[in-house]
Simulated assay, not measured.
Amino acid sequence: MPKLSIVVPCYNEQESIPLFYPAVEKVVNKMPVEVEYWFVNDGSADKTLDELRKLHQQNPDKVHYVSFSRNFGKEAGLYAGLEATTGDYVVVMDVDLQDPPEYLPIMYKYISTGEYDCVGMRRTDRTGEAKFKSFLSDKFYDVINKVSDTKIVNGARDYRMMTRQMVNAVLSLKEYNRFSKGIFNWVGFKTKYLPYKNVRRIAGTTDWSTWKLFKYAVDGITDFSEAPLSIATWIGGMSAFLSILGLIFVIVRRIIEPSSSAFGWASMVCIMLLLGGLQLMCIGIVGKYIGKIYMQTKQRPIYIVKEKK
Rank of each mutant, 00 (worst) to 15 (best):
P105Y: 05
M161N: 03
G128F: 01
D94E: 10
A156P: 12
K146Q: 14
P101C: 03
F135E: 13
A80D: 04
T124R: 09
V63K: 03
M166R: 15
K62G: 08
G77I: 08
D125T: 11
N71V: 06
N145I: 14
G77H: 00
V170E: 03
G114D: 04
V90C: 13
T163H: 10
F72E: 13
E75Y: 07
Q58I: 10
R126D: 02
T150R: 08
F135V: 10
H64M: 01
M121T: 02
S69G: 00
Y110P: 00
T86Q: 14
E83I: 00
K74T: 02
G87F: 11
T124L: 09
S172H: 06
P101M: 04
F135A: 13
S172N: 12
A84S: 13
S67V: 04
K133T: 12
V66M: 09
I152K: 15
Y89F: 15
G155F: 12
V147C: 08
H64C: 02
Y65K: 01
L104W: 06
M162K: 15
G120Q: 02
E129D: 10
Y103Q: 07
H56Q: 12
E102K: 14
L82H: 07
K139F: 13
S134R: 06
K54P: 00
T163E: 09
D61I: 09
L82C: 12
G128K: 07
T127Q: 14
A130G: 04
V153Q: 05
M161D: 03
P105V: 02
R70T: 01
T150K: 09
K54V: 06
Q98C: 15
K109D: 10
R126T: 06
K174I: 03
D142K: 15
T124P: 00
P60D: 03
P100Y: 05
G87Q: 00
V147S: 05
M93R: 06
A84N: 14
G87V: 05
L136S: 15
Q165V: 10
M166I: 11
D61M: 07
P100A: 12
